[in-house]
């Protein structure tokens, strides 16, 4: 039931952003549509909906967004320099890293962050063992623990506070 309420609020916010200059008729139609969607697919949305009530998670999320955007910008400049270099300095390979995150949302956000940061692309996830296979454009180490230290650590600390 709580999951349906959260989906209703999120859907209503997205609807009112899509029809932005706020209007009474649009808001009424949005209420109807969001209620219908929440009634049909609400129980699939979140497994632990009480997490949406914790204030500290939102504060850590606000800390996470600038970190993520800064890493994303560095990744773009890195890739642009590699592509424009005539010698094409790449050294690719697929390495294995470990993670301690368990929840689905946490693993999804970790994989997305890894994909958008410098030189790494998530290829597959083994959720039970907590293993991620990462395609790395410039392999610095083939050891699992060192690669974990280099790739996963900066995000895992923050994501653990948000999603676990």
């Amino acid at each position: 039931m709580k999951s349906r309420l959260v989906l209703f609020i999120v859907g209503f916010i997205v609807w009112s952003l899509l029809t932005w200059p706020l209007d009474f008729q649009h808001l009424v139609a949005g209420l109807a549509v969001a209620a219908l969607v929440a009634f049909i697919t609400g129980d699939l949305f979140s497994r632990r909906p009480y997490y949406f009530g914790h204030i500290t998670r939102y504060i850590w999320f606000c800390y996470y967004v600038p970190v993520f955007l800064w890493e994303c910008l560095k990744a773009n400049i890195d890739v642009a320099l590699r592509v424009l270099n005539p010698k094409l300095p790449i050294n690719p390979g697929i390495v294995k890293v470990k993670t301690t995150l368990k929840s689905d949302a946490g693993l999804t956000f970790l994989a997305n962050s890894i994909t958008l940061t410098p030189g790494t692309l998530c290829v597959d996830i083994d959720a039970e063992k907590g293993i991620l296979y990462i395609h790395w454009i410039d392999v610095k180490t083939q050891d699992t623990d060192k690669a974990t230290e280099l790739i996963v650590r900066p995000f895992e600390k923050v994501l653990k506070k948000i999603f676990e």
Partner: peptide, 27 residues
């Protein structure tokens, strides 16, 4: 433009995915 040059120049599928998914998305 840099992402699309990467799509042309890089040697295999995974490297091309790296270039396009970073550069084109942020661009």
């Amino acid at each position: 433009v840099f992402g699309c040059i990467g799509l042309i120049r890089l040697p295999d599928v995974y490297n091309r995915l790296q270039a396009t998914t970073k550069c084109v998305t942020l661009g």
